[in-house]
Amino acid sequence: MKISIQINEGPYQHQASDTAYQFAKAAIERGHEIFRVFFYHDGVNNASRFTIPPQDDRNIVNQWAELGIKNANGEPELVVCVAAALRRGILDESEAIKNGIDCNNIHPAFRISGLGQLIEAGIQSDRLVVFGD
């Protein structure tokens, strides 16, 4: 089955991203396809490659990256909402250049795109599950 996930909360502050990750991992192991994970609201903070937890703690960003959720073209299907991301200082290279900022912080396993990707995930998937506060 094709399953998509929406995550509304950032890492560490809230369990939402941890639960969603465990759910996604179990779904993949069960033979399902994770069509897309869409990060919205503070959930966009899950995509920061500047995240450095203490050594004895999990690295939530890298955990997501290691799941390797991609489409047939090899593009990441860990998708960060552009409007929510720019509000919160999550940038990819093109948004950084466009806005005159000297670096970017998105992890390469994620990509920034529009809210239409969330609606499309709802249309294309058999199930959509929301994790939030």
Partner: peptide, 16 residues
């Protein structure tokens, strides 16, 4: 922020 960002999704959804 949930209310305003929800409304933003609804406005995008209208195009689909």
């Amino acid at each position: 922020v949930y209310a305003i960002e929800s409304l933003e999704v609804v406005l995008v959804a209208a195009a689909f």
